[in-house]
């Protein structure tokens, strides 16, 4: 019984490690499948962070959000 429990815990630990490393490799769909020209990112194109149409206008926090890579 003890070996069974240890094996279940080991499986969960390895799975958690796998989840962490796989998460590092994950990209959003808009990064994987489209170029910046096609991305709807209010901070760098289209409407801007304040929805004014000017991407250079800082947001309320005073920072211009960099475009996603």
């Amino acid at each position: 019984m003890r070996v069974m429990l240890i094996s279940a815990v080991a499986a969960i630990l390895v799975a958690t490690g796998a989840a962490f490393f796989l998460g590092q490799e994950q990209r959003f769909a808009y990064q994987a499948f489209a170029t910046t020209g096609a991305r709807v990112t209010p901070s760098s194109n289209l409407v801007g962070p304040r929805w004014t149409g000017d991407p250079d206008v800082p947001s309320k926090s005073g920072q211009i959000t960099p475009p996603p890579g």
Binding site: A15, A19, L22
Partner: peptide
């Protein structure tokens, strides 16, 4: 999630 992550200890 379980399927994707437990596949690794299974293979090990």
């Amino acid at each position: 999630y379980a399927h994707n992550f437990l596949a690794w200890p299974f293979t090990l």
